[in-house]
Write a protein that binds this DNA or RNA. Structure first.
Length: 207
DNA sequence: CAGCAGATTGACT
DNA sequence: GTCAATCTGCTGC
């Protein structure tokens, strides 16, 4: 296995915050039904550190059919369905049995843009994948990809086109987890400062 | 097995 | 800024 995919060691690092930062600027690729590629540059992520993180689905070591995937080895895809209509794509990190994961919240369209425009009919390009539900719709990610190996051939990450400097990375509180108390305040959301493709979770929060 | 809230989005006041 | 859509998984009766 020596193609351009990010290696297993990228995902099995013990620090999920480091992986959340390192994912910025990488290329998320989904293989379409006809074998062609649809891909985007990761511009926004959030770290979830179960079992201690109250905002994580794996808080308290919760282990159900849905969360079971989070306990797999780093480099596994965790896709779940929320609000009755949206999918969310996560990257499982750390070693087996440690339920850490990174939610990919936004990507900048790179390949298969015509297909994304079709799937997201009527949206401006900067809104094609600027949100966790939007990027799943644009890239064609659904629960069929839950549990997929990110070193396999259905969905994976490749090194991005350029190196990201630490100074380009902004951080702030995670979105939509107000119920998580003090955990909601932790600055575990990361994005490429200045990107026009980050989610509106940004501007929408706080006065 | 009913009720409810959710790692959101888009339409509308 | 407000709110419905829509359904799964979890919780509790």
């Amino acid at each position: 296995m020596s193609d351009g995919k990010l290696p297993r060691e990228f995902y099995t690092r013990r620090d999920v915050l480091a992986v959340a930062r390192a994912l910025l600027g990488q290329r998320l690729v989904v293989r379409a039904r006809d074998g062609s590629r649809v891909a985007g540059l990761v511009v926004e992520t959030e770290a979830y550190r179960g079992p201690e993180d109250r905002a994580s689905h794996a808080f308290g070591g919760r282990r159900t059919r849905r969360t079971e995937i989070m306990y797999r080895i780093g480099g596994t895809s965790y896709v779940y369905f929320v609000y009755g209509m949206h999918h969310q794509f996560n990257v499982v990190t750390n070693v087996e049995d440690v339920p850490h994961a990174v939610l990919v919240r936004a990507v900048e369209p790179l390949e298969g843009v015509a297909r994304m425009r079709r799937r997201r009919a009527g949206r401006a390009d900067r809104e094609l994948a600027s949100g966790p539900g939007r990027l799943c719709a644009a890239l064609g990610i659904d629960r069929r990809l839950d549990g997929a190996d990110l070193l396999g051939d259905r969905v994976w990450l490749e090194p991005g086109p350029r190196r990201i400097r630490p100074s380009e990375i902004a951080c702030g509180p995670r979105i939509g987890i107000a119920y998580a108390g003090e955990w909601a305040e932790r600055p575990w959301r990361f994005w490429l400062a200045g990107s026009e493709h980050v989610s509106r979770g940004d501007g929408r929060r706080r006065p």
